[in-house]
Design a protein around this nucleic acid. Sequence first.
DNA 1: TTTAAAACGTACAGACTTGTCTGTTTTCTG
DNA 2: CAGAAAACAGACAAGTCTGTACGTTTTAAA
Lengths: 185, 185
Amino acid sequence: MIKENVKDRIISAASELFYFDGYNQTGINKIIEKAEVSKDSMYRHFRSKEAIAVVYLEQRHKAWITDMTNYLSVKPAGQERVIAIFDYLNHWLSQVDYRGCGFQNIITDIPKNQNSIKEVVRKCKDDMLRFILDELNKTSSESMDTKEISNEIMVLIEGAIMLSQIQKANWPLVAAKKACERLLK
Amino acid sequence: MIKENVKDRIISAASELFYFDGYNQTGINKIIEKAEVSKDSMYRHFRSKEAIAVVYLEQRHKAWITDMTNYLSVKPAGQERVIAIFDYLNHWLSQVDYRGCGFQNIITDIPKNQNSIKEVVRKCKDDMLRFILDELNKTSSESMDTKEISNEIMVLIEGAIMLSQIQKANWPLVAAKKACERLLK
DNA sequence: TTTAAAACGTACAGACTTGTCTGTTTTCTG
DNA sequence: CAGAAAACAGACAAGTCTGTACGTTTTAAA
């Protein structure tokens, strides 16, 4: 079997370690060991550890949005699809032992100067908010303030992910879905 | 002015650094420098860095609950008080540049074996959920499932805190309050 | 005043951190 | 086949990390 190229192996290894062990718990030596590349190669592909994290987040976001969109594609467009986001979260998070969101987990504890990471996280969250707003605008009545409701649903999503990680249980996801349903009535 | 005792100075310094800089960005040397104590003294009071974090979280929770309870005491007991939690969050978080919740920030990225920290975080969150439930039970009609609604409000709280830190803005807090008001109708 | 307790200053230990560098090897391309 | 590119192995640098230890000083208590 053809070995993945060096750059992809680095991102793949880093993604796994950053997400499951934590960004700060993951050193460069752990990454190169798991990726089976040399340190010099790694630094020829990425300027710094922060640069690796930025690519990790960007790729993670793309993959996540794609996975979620695929999951939701069997649902009718609009409000039902938005409600089903919580089913998707439940499906995904139960598979990773409620380890939570890679973006939330990284932004809470990084060196002050690693602003690229903050920018990427913010951008990806904006993207998700836009997704919700677009879906709501497909089926909502003119009288509904979809902008406002999108913000509320976004807060539910972020909270459900964080709280399910803290409690290592799915009840926050279930509660969030119910709240979402009632907010959309 | 009488200098605070050693133990309190350690916790005070550690609390500031853990919260604003991050648990992983804070080394033992930073703590003892800020606290103006020797390393040996520090280790005579606390078995480990993790032990310091546990005390930090416990004391932070007590202070936070007290501060919040004082803030809310001008509100009538029950639902209005629960809704006003979001005003309190806004008041507090705008003062700390939306740095978020010390508990969320620490639980996302710690060494796997530091279970004491996870236990304390979980316990404090359970405490907060109980506070919400108790308040709701003061004024809610018998037909309201206060247990369910408490869970939903708890999710809103956690989400608003996390999202306002990501975005460095208060709109998630405002949105969460509105969602809370509508859920309580 | 004396003794004990508490605290200090700092060296030390061993491990880990990010990042750089150099000679060598392997792979790719013309 | 030869040369360039890519990758490698691993030493090195300088710093930081948590935690221990020891002789000394300061403070508290009897």
